[in-house]
Design a protein around this nucleic acid. Structure first.
Length: 300
DNA sequence: ACCCAGGCGGGCG
DNA sequence: CGCCCGCATGGG
């Protein structure tokens, strides 16, 4: 039985919780607008605007798109083809994971444009989610190209391509609040336009993709894993940020400090090829629980 | 005021 | 290799 179905502009999907998905700090949510009162999401992609309205509970969600054009892309972007039952079975290895899954059931890892993902996660280093959103929005405002959504709605701009950003300089990026990351972004935009084809990496192995990404200045182990996971759909990727590190140490190592390499090995063994999903649930769980040092928060 | 944030590159031992 | 440091900036 398929995990979702599309009929014209209506999508039915099991295990899709849009709220937790947009709150879990993935590239799409760094600039998409979600209206909590209406249960509607709006985002720009591929020079088109997609508007979606969500109905029903997360267990059996219905998504109504403004037009049928974006349906296939929506399904791809929210990974509706994933068998969440199978995934949960793989990653529910203990009481902590069970709790995270129970609380955030239906939260998806999203699949985003590789360059968009690269820029967002270069921006993420030594930064916080709220400020990443702020800076990314400024980048879209400043450097994005206007989209005619044919609806008379609020103006939208496309996410600036790497080629587009080569028309600007480190100084311009700094003006958007990128700070010391501005030089990485200038370098990455140039490199990804002239030296590396990010879109040519699709279909390569996780190890291959990650190694290539790490050739980009400003992309290290953690950021490369984020891009592999959310820009290429590599579920073997396990990004270890401060939240995930703290949480793993706390839950599985009695609070002892562990080096990333050891935590990578631990995750590989424990969650096998679905560790990307395990990571996203751990990350979101940690960020929303004071137990792990988080302050109370709603949407950031 | 002080502290932290989805880390990284470079320099040192 | 591993370790340590500085880094821009806005919000709690």
């Amino acid at each position: 039985m398929p995990n979702y179905s599309i009929a014209k502009n209506r999508i039915r999907a099991s295990e899709l919780d849009i709220v937790h998905t947009v709150e879990s700090a993935q590239p799409l949510t760094f600039h998409a607008d979600y209206d909590f009162a209406n249960g509607s999401l709006e985002y720009a992609t591929n020079f088109a605007v997609t508007r979606a309205k969500f109905k029903g509970g997360p267990a059996n969600a219905t998504v109504e798109l403004e037009s049928s054009d974006g349906a296939r892309e929506f399904a791809q972007r929210f990974r509706l083809g994933d068998d969440m039952g199978e995934i949960y079975q793989h990653i529910s290895t203990d009481a902590s994971m069970d709790a995270a899954i129970k609380r955030y059931r239906g939260m998806r890892v999203t699949l985003n444009d590789p360059w968009e993902t690269t820029l967002c996660f270069i921006m993420s280093q030594f930064n916080n989610v709220k400020r990443i959103r702020l800076i990314i929005r400024r980048f879209i405002d400043e450097f994005g190209t206007p989209i005619n959504d044919g609806n008379g709605g609020p103006a939208r701009k496309s996410f600036p391509t790497s080629a587009r950003l080569t028309e600007f300089s480190e100084k311009d990026f700094r003006r958007c609040g990128a700070g010391f990351r501005a030089k990485y972004i200038a370098s990455a935009a140039e490199f990804c336009t002239n030296n590396m084809d990010l879109y040519g990496l699709t279909g390569k192995s996780y190890d291959n993709v990650k190694a290539s990404l790490m050739e980009i200045s400003g992309v290290g182990d953690k950021v490369a894993d984020c891009i592999a996971l959310m820009g290429y759909g590599k579920m073997e990727a396990f990004p270890i940020d401060v939240w995930v590190k703290r949480t793993l140490e706390r839950i599985y190592f009695k609070g002892e400090k562990k080096r990333p390499a050891e935590l990578h090995d631990f995750a590989d063994e424990r969650w096998s090829n679905w560790r990307g999903y395990a990571q996203q649930y751990l990350f979101h769980y940690a960020r929303n629980n004071s137990l792990y040092g988080a302050k109370d928060r709603k949407l950031v």
